[in-house]
Design a protein around this nucleic acid. Sequence first.
DNA 1: GAGCGATATATTCTATAGATTCCTGATGGC
DNA 2: GCCATCAGGAATCTATAGAATATATCGCTC
Lengths: 238, 238
Amino acid sequence: MSKNSSLSHRVTNDLRRDIVAGILPPGAWLKTEELAARYAVSANPVREALWRLQGEGFVVANPNQGARVRMVDDDFVRNIFELREAIEPIFVRRFCQRATPEDLDRLRAAAADFATVAREQPTDFDALDAANRDFHSIMLEGEINVQAIEVMQRYAGLINATRAKLPIMPSRVRQRVAQHTEMVEAIVAADADAAARVAVDHIRAAGEDMLSQMRQVRLTGSRVARNQPARKDDLPAG
Amino acid sequence: MSKNSSLSHRVTNDLRRDIVAGILPPGAWLKTEELAARYAVSANPVREALWRLQGEGFVVANPNQGARVRMVDDDFVRNIFELREAIEPIFVRRFCQRATPEDLDRLRAAAADFATVAREQPTDFDALDAANRDFHSIMLEGEINVQAIEVMQRYAGLINATRAKLPIMPSRVRQRVAQHTEMVEAIVAADADAAARVAVDHIRAAGEDMLSQMRQVRLTGSRVARNQPARKDDLPAG
DNA sequence: GAGCGATATATTCTATAGATTCCTGATGGC
DNA sequence: GCCATCAGGAATCTATAGAATATATCGCTC
């Protein structure tokens, strides 16, 4: 697809992957020289990758001081989900207006797929996430507000990467299935208000669920096994 | 204030100023070498400035091909104002909750200031804009959703720069004064719903006004004298 | 002779290495 | 105990070399 085969792109992807995998944990300093050695490039592509990842929200940088992996704390999660609650209705409403019968069929099919995954692999985050993404991306296909899409997707990677490391509650998965169904029904009925309302509820529930799982992990210190930090020793320094 | 006195920051500011002033018009190619010569630095700070301005929305860049000043067309304006309509209510509602009597006094004073400017200098965009900014920034003072603020301010500079070159309708200025008053009243009454509604109307009116002025300028070819491109000859190439 | 495709050239972005500037923390003087 | 100065380290900048892309020219086919 996008064969952005420049060094800085490769470094961007590698760095993102390592952050997502937890090899570079939240708060870790991202020293240019260190990363340059790690990825076998010079300082410039690393700098550029850091810029890009700053744009994606993975990294926060201070002038003349260096960059670090962003801390995903409660405030941040709350802020992002609040933003999503504000923006998603735009997409849902417009999709209500423009959806063709074929679009509706595909949306229904995607909702069914998600329900299947939820039934058969209810604890597999990646599978659930992929199915969920398929469902929601249908609504973005003909969306004209590219700036709004950009905002919505900006922190999606980071939020998702963080969510992937948290436990999954079966009850919440069932709730998501129900909400998808509800949304499809509202859209089929061309009831934009109802669809937007469901979308907001959907996002709010997801946000509250994530916050509660984060609290849970903080309290119990538990951590889901999969996607664990692997080997921290890969890095020269701590 | 922010004494970001690195070369790339200086270039960022200079480049932004030149784009805002119209010396580098929308659509103009921003060649690294050319800009490096223009601002008497090497390619790297220019690259970095372009990254930053891409983040601010002034510039769009393609890999291995170059960057250009963003075109501000109708779609873009519509998208940005739609985003604002979605996000601004977040701020207004929360301000309603936390506003102290002192905050309300200052908001009232700012609204009065804007009204004064509107009466005495109704065609001075900069004065109106400054007063308007003062008014709205009061509501952002204690705002906790920094990501939402960032989104709101992202394209503000570019939109403002474009708006500054368009004509100002006295009737629209009067409408803005009235809307400010209305908003203050709703906030004083702690009626968050009403305040949010007024805010949305306010933004929608501003967006429609801007679009209609853009249409007007396109049709008549007229252009406001002040802030005109100055001298394009400053640039090596056309 | 006109249109199309391939090669060659020119332009521009991209990457490297070394020099420079800036920030941070530590040491010594007041 | 507090402030100024200095050393170490890291980010930033310059200059130059290396890729990638777009453009123009030439030759071929129809």
